[in-house]
Write a protein that binds this DNA or RNA. Structure first.
Length: 282
DNA sequence: CTTCTCGGACGTTCAACCCT
DNA sequence: GGGTTGAACGTCCGAGAAGT
């Protein structure tokens, strides 16, 4: 069935997803950290790692199961329930996993193309295989205190100006190469330094005080954010407004959100019924 | 200018097929 | 039995249309 394109609310900015069923989080940005405007799977590249145009387009990552709203809108979902998008539109209560239909069985397949298995062994795999993510082999032992470098970790070769500036540069000791880990999980943020007048603690330039390592007891789209004045504010995802506590308005009470809710509330049920019918005859 | 719609590219899954 | 292949199915990017 070609997926019906739907009537869900929209207007999205890119959002991250921590999908992946136990797969170590790849180099995706946590939404609690400022979004750079790049797709979730793209990062600035460290110096010396300027990618070829081909490498620039890294793999798109998908959630395993989009919610029904995102699915109908053909928009990016995430693994959280409610997902960011539903939260944003105030339809969190309608954020449910879509049902995957069962795959057809007994589909006959033509003869396989000859897999030149042995021939392929002759070809230098470097030429055949797609360019691997550029990973620089570092001839320096990883410090024993560091987490093991997994396949998803790419050692960096120095930071170009403006990139990764919120993370401590390597110490510069002779022979030391900064190990690079998924930045949002293991970046070490130095403690705030008291200023000269001893008052407001100041973070080093570029450091963001809201860093919270996983796991954290907040929905993935919020992190506690300590403001310079010492108060805790919710560093919310840009479009998401935390429900105002004072007013009676619930999340999703904005006119736009209400519109969205109303729109999705109607029409969708009948669509779902249709879908169920379709799945039924498999 | 913002928001919505949706075509289609791209990613994921998994049964059929192939190889050892 | 285990690895490989490739089609089915799913996600969601991004351009253009529609709305405000």
């Amino acid at each position: 069935m070609p997926m019906r394109h739907g009537d869900s609310p929209d207007a999205d900015e890119p959002i991250d997803s921590h999908s992946d069923d136990g797969v170590p989080p790849q180099m995706t940005m946590h939404p609690s950290v400022g979004y750079s405007g790049m797709p979730m799977h793209m990062y600035p590249f460290a110096g010396g790692m300027i990618p070829t145009p081909q490498q620039l387009r890294s793999k798109r990552r998908q959630v395993k199961n989009a919610c029904t709203n995102c699915q109908k809108a053909c928009k990016k979902c995430d693994d959280a329930r409610p997902c960011l998008r539903c939260v944003k539109y105030g339809i969190a209560e309608e954020c449910i996993d879509s049902q995957r239909r069962e795959r057809k069985k007994g589909v006959k397949r033509g003869p396989y193309k000859k897999r030149d298995g042995k021939d392929r062994a002759d070809n230098s795999p470097d030429q055949e295989s797609p360019p691997a993510p550029q990973t620089i082999a570092i001839p320096v032992a990883t410090p024993s205190t560091s987490p093991p470098i997994g396949a998803y970790m790419t050692p960096a070769v120095g930071f170009p100006p403006g990139f990764y500036s919120q993370y401590p540069p390597h110490t510069g000791r002779p022979g030391e190469v900064p190990a690079y880990f998924p930045q949002f999980y293991i970046a070490q943020v130095p403690p705030p330094q008291p200023t000269a007048d001893g008052e407001t603690p100041a973070y080093p330039p570029g450091f963001y005080p809201a860093f919270v390592p996983y796991p954290q007891p907040y929905p993935p789209y919020m992190v506690p954010h300590q403001r310079p004045d010492g108060q805790m504010a919710m560093a919310a995802y840009p479009m998401y407004k935390a429900p105002s506590t004072g007013n009676s308005s619930e999340p999703g009470s904005s006119s736009k959100e209400q519109r969205a809710t109303a729109r999705t509330a109607g029409g969708r049920e009948e669509e779902e019924e249709e879908e169920e019918e379709e799945t039924g005859d498999n």
